[in-house]
Nucleic acid binder design. Sequence first.
DNA 1: TTGTATGCGTTATCAC
DNA 2: GTGATAACGCATACAA
Lengths: 360, 360
Amino acid sequence: MMNTSPPRSPRRTASRPSPTLEDLALAAGVSRSTASRAINGGDRVSPEAQAAVERAVGDLGYIPNRAARSLVTRRTSSIALVIPEPDVRVMMDPFFAVVITGITEALRDTDVQLVLLMSRADDDASRTLRYLRGGHVDGAIVVSHHEADSWARSLAQTGLPTIFIGRPWDTASDVTYVDSDNVGGGRLAARHLVGLGRRRLATVAGPADMTAAVDRLRGWTEGLAEAGLPASPVVHGDFTTEGGAAAARRLIAEHPDIDGVFAASDLMALGVIEALQAAGRTVPGDIAVIGYDNHAVAATAPTPLTTITQPMVGMAVRAGRMLLEEIEAPGSHPEPVIYPTELVERASTAVAPTASAANA
Amino acid sequence: MMNTSPPRSPRRTASRPSPTLEDLALAAGVSRSTASRAINGGDRVSPEAQAAVERAVGDLGYIPNRAARSLVTRRTSSIALVIPEPDVRVMMDPFFAVVITGITEALRDTDVQLVLLMSRADDDASRTLRYLRGGHVDGAIVVSHHEADSWARSLAQTGLPTIFIGRPWDTASDVTYVDSDNVGGGRLAARHLVGLGRRRLATVAGPADMTAAVDRLRGWTEGLAEAGLPASPVVHGDFTTEGGAAAARRLIAEHPDIDGVFAASDLMALGVIEALQAAGRTVPGDIAVIGYDNHAVAATAPTPLTTITQPMVGMAVRAGRMLLEEIEAPGSHPEPVIYPTELVERASTAVAPTASAANA
DNA sequence: TTGTATGCGTTATCAC
DNA sequence: GTGATAACGCATACAA
């Protein structure tokens, strides 16, 4: 019995196969190699051939097959943005959107694509690492966080060009990173409150395992020392509003006479203000509060927040550019870049006491 | 003169080349083909061979070369998230983070990667399209917006599996999308205000070129009609707080006696409340205000917002799953999915008048 | 300047 | 069940 079944149809029945370099060369009347050269920079190709190929590209709507190209060049034309443990809290942070926007900006008019790598904690952590070292991307930008140390080390061993946004814990293995001057930011906060005449200060610091939090706290302490003040009480929060509120409650329980608080994040500052007001204190009348991040809510909060701002978009753009450079010229190991921070004054530390005289 | 320069060193000096399937087969004592089969599902391969290969994989740390695989399978194992015109406003919207989180969730324990495609307006718009049709991804999820119509049509022609999040303008070419019941949401808002006894209503609608805005407005109007009320005054905003405030100012200028406002987004609702209070009205005392989205700020605003909520994460997860299915079984053209919306009651429409009696 | 030939690492076909 | 062998689409060393 004859086999009368039709030949197995190709997977993609709908659209006709996209033209290959072969087709292009044929249409342009040149060889594959010439066509290839014309496409990539057009070096060592006659003007006529170049023109012919370019016209053919337009006619056929030719698009190079990335896989084939990648197979031979060993370049993928894509980089990864690694976000370790993206719990909802992390994701909702506008920080994220900014980072993505910045990197995208750095990548524009480049044909480099951004692939998102969210490594979940419950996941086999090494899965992300495997992908990274699998040669699927030409480089990676890692949003630093508490566990970043292991990442830094592992990635350094890989040899994959990597830039961290936010200084990772382990900077031993000459990792490259972009960060803002958190120490300077903390110092700014201290100076501002001291300059306002506040003397009974306290701080709600961030998690002790995050470099940004540690740095801000160090700057704050240095700033106080600079002014001849003793170290202030320190309570740790988790960068959230609730955490800030809880921290503030502990603070006023143990130190009822404070007149100034530095919260290491705007969200925490909001919580601090809430808790203080719930405890009958006025802000900034009784207690001046300063936040950090210049989060969107800082300006629109019931009590607009004085805060420390950092050029986040610029940092992300820079990280993107640095990565591209490092990919282009491996081994150049660029120096870490630290962006300056600035104070933004708003109502939460307004000099004019709201109703402080009555309460003091 | 002799050329004494050393041979050009390979591009990647640092790391040794990753093991290939050939190496793997050698180590496992089988042929390439068997090794390949063992890796992909292990069909038609003896238990011994399978075990040998698996052990070799562990020993060598073998990772399949995606490019090579993609070249022959014509599958890229990656999908694109297309975000048209990602201006800062769009990016900062938590909507984004949620979409990414949801899609990522749908992709977990799949080896499919998510690549971000932000097509800027000033960019050659077709660039993104070229990438999409270039076979670089197996499918795409498009976050719908005002210009989505062209996208829908173009992508439909491409034959690339595509899911829209938010109904695109042009649904003619049987595009598949996931949306929430915006009409129902608008109706909920109307019913709620009417149920509260408010009769002199008005709405701050969203941009007239966005389907979500149009639908919400339609639902609102239908809801009023249902209650035997005439169509309300309509002012359009741009979904931002400032836009909402501006709209509210026009509203009270032209209709000073309103006692209820439906804003098509929480951000606009915030602006509306601001403007109303600046004009000496109380909320909800004089005027009840209801928002839309259940944005994070809705709960924490000075006047917590009554709002309409939609299961955004679920929608994104669904979109991801649908895309995977469509990729797996092309041509199945799944039906659009509409998620229900719900009312969340908060202070901005509290029944008990705050100080309304005095003002009325 | 151009074309020829080779190889990149995999999967798929088909005899065995 | 297994193993040769032929694509896949492209870039490049080399010969012309």
